[in-house]
Amino acid sequence: MHMADALLSPAVGTTLWAGTAAVTSYASKKLKREIDDRTIPLMGVLGAFIFAAQMINFTIPGTGSSGHLGGGMILAIILGPHAAILVIASVLTVQALFFADGGLLALGCNIWNLGFYPCYLVYPLLYKPLVGNSQKPGRILVASLVSAVTALQLGAFSVVLETLLSGKSELPFGAFLLLMQPIHLAIGIIEGLVTAGIINYVRSARPELLETMAALRPLDASISLKKIMATFIVLAVITGGALSWFASTHPDGLEWSIEKVTGKGELPEQENGIAPVLKGIQEKTAFLPDYGFKPAGNDAKEGEAPPVWPGIEAGTSVAGLIGAVIVLGMIVLIGMGIRSFRRGCT
């Protein structure tokens, strides 16, 4: 599941971007030093391959719903972690731009969730030890299953954390987890089966191929994991710290937004001479009817809404609503104007 821009706060978005930037530039440096030239076209073509494979849907056994290949694990297995994370980042970039999957700010999160875990955690710490030097299809199947499931669980868990830290969703932690983890267990199992299937197919059709490709890449870097984590933590602390300092100077949340929307001291004027039309509107649209400014005697709705949220001034909020509609209308008109002007020109 792709993390989305609309759920992100700037602090979480930029922190994860910083982490992703650190990991990908580390991977690029590593590759630049140790890679065989021929890996560059291989990376590009395999990225395109993941896309082509994703375009083909298949039916998930027993459910009738359709699935497709994610591809993170298979890239890590074939290309090794450094090259794989760059390819995954590329695939996600193209998805963010062309399919609007997630968005460009959330891209940092998505590369982290879907790239970092399979490449730098699961592949060196789970897949490699589980497979060992064995070529047996059964062993590959087990390793792929465990790896894909773990990678996707970590990814889904990150989505939950990122969403909660951003604070745009009201979902409580537990409920969100219950929503995300089981779905991704299912997705992970499918991904593992497909990954193992492809690896085993390639192994039987062209046994030498995987070895040749393994020889192309630099030594797998489970050792340097520490370095990556350290860089990420430092970057996260710096950006997170800077941003939360910045954010703390502006109180966040409902209070703040309402405070901003209202602006003080205009209420009395409005109370004095409201036109009958607007008065009608206001009666229908009165925010927080129990609040003191309402014209006396107009208390029909007083009992309906519980007095939970003091501090909202009706007149200005209505102004916001009316303004929003007017602005939207203006923007549409501008758009149509430009369009017809262009048509007229050509």
Partner: peptide, 29 residues
């Protein structure tokens, strides 16, 4: 439309992709 066929199909696609990468590499060289 099942997983089994999908895997074979994508496997074929994968092998062709790898061969293509090799040819592109030669063209680049």
């Amino acid at each position: 439309a099942g997983v089994r066929v999908f895997v074979r199909l994508v496997g074929v696609l994968f092998l062709r992709a790898v061969d293509r990468a090799e040819r592109i590499y030669h063209a680049m060289l």
